[in-house]
Nucleic acid binder design. Structure first.
Length: 304
RNA sequence: GCACAGGUGGCCGAGCGGUUAAUGGCAGCAGACUGUAAAUCUGCCGCUCCUUGGAGCUACGGAGGUUCGAAUCCUCCCCUGUGCA
């Protein structure tokens, strides 16, 4: 199988498509927002035509109302990989979401999924006394507390949640190890455009999302959620968050666009940090739609 | 032209005689991250040099001045915004 990583806007999608077509492959998306139906423009999902030419997996597999998790991704993606392999096709995993990719390749420890009500209570506590939770965690699982910064509330809450619901420490659960993906030879290709060019491309792309109707897409998605209680977290995603500000009258369109551009750039930066430490990645300089990058990638796939 | 309000490090913005290379925030760079991860968090962030710790240089529109000491006070000048003409 082939795994393509890289920051947003680096052209991963078009490289994946090119490889899949050339080598009779199927694409497994690794994107924590593209799993949701209806989130089209802001996620830059591959166009329908492309999805008809080449089979895509892990896109449109959840509704906004049901929150997707890394564990669900792991199971569903592995299932998809097995099926693709059984068909004798080449799996092409295209990843933007580092955590999901790591979960897929290395597995997750056997920890429980999240418990929203518990989190709600913990968050309320945290709001009252910010340092309290970290101290609580230190008592429950000193090793985990040492590894998590006192300001990193989501991770502290998760660690406490794991301890409380599994009746074991997160540290001991981790020691049980994870189950890495087996049965595939993995070729990792990293798409790495020059920084300034990437940022320029990201800004154009974010602008275009708004030109293409991101705000109205968001409005439609929001309407589908009307009366369903708390807004699903996906709406905090890049672009959708800013589009909502326009809908709520909190920001001018131009301001929202600028904010979205900024957020995308920041995100790309974080992705690069994440993927840089991914082992055994063959990094190709340039965009995924560059002919040269595609040629070199194809060459590697052919070799493998 | 007069009257106010201002001009601070890439940007926004605090400071309003010494403890100030100058609080914050943003951007930038580097990093962490096992079920919200497009989330969250950390470090660095004027320049140069040496080993931690320091040393030197440059800096708060410009030019002068007051003071042991000024981003902070005074004078003149330049620029910006607002109001009145």
């Amino acid at each position: 199988m082939v795994v393509i990583v890289g920051p947003t806007g680096s052209g991963k999608t078009s490289l994946a498509l090119a490889l899949a077509e050339q080598f009779s492959g199927e694409i497994v998306s690794c994107d924590s927002v593209a799993v949701y139906r209806g989130f089209e423009i802001g996620t830059a999902k591959p166009p329908l035509a492309a999805r008809q030419r080449v089979a895509h997996h892990l896109i449109d597999v959840a509704d906004a109302g049901e929150s997707f998790t890394a564990g669900m991704y792991l199971r569903q993606a592995r299932h998809a990989l097995a099926e693709i392999a059984a068909r004798g096709k080449l799996p092409v995993v295209v990843g933007g979401t580092g955590l999901y990719l790591r979960a897929l390749l290395q597995g997750l420890s056997p920890a429980p999924t999240r418990v929203p009500e518990l989190r709600e209570r913990l968050r309320a506590l945290a709001a009252r006394s910010p340092n309290h939770l970290h101290r609580v965690l230190r008592r429950m699982d000193a090793a985990a507390a040492a590894a998590i910064h006192p300001n990193d509330m989501p991770k502290i809450i998760r660690a406490i949640e794991v301890c409380m619901t599994s009746r074991q420490t997160m540290t001991s659960l981790w020691k049980e190890g994870r189950e890495p993906l087996r049965g595939f030879r993995i070729l990792r290709i990293g798409v790495s455009p020059e920084r300034a060019a990437l940022y320029a491309r990201i800004e154009l792309r974010a602008q275009r999302m708004f030109d293409d109707g991101l705000v109205s897409e968001t409005q439609t998605l929001l309407q589908a959620q009307a009366g369903a209680g708390e807004l699903p977290f996906v709406f905090n995603s890049l672009g959708y968050k800013q589009a909502m500000r326009v809908l709520n009258g909190e920001a001018e369109l131009s301001q929202a666009i600028a904010e979205a551009q900024q957020a995308h750039r920041n995100y790309a930066k974080r992705q690069m940090t994440w993927f840089r430490r991914e082992p055994d990645v063959l990094w190709l300089t340039g965009f995924g739609d560059d002919a040269e990058v595609q040629r070199r990638a194809a060459q590697e796939v052919a070799k493998a």
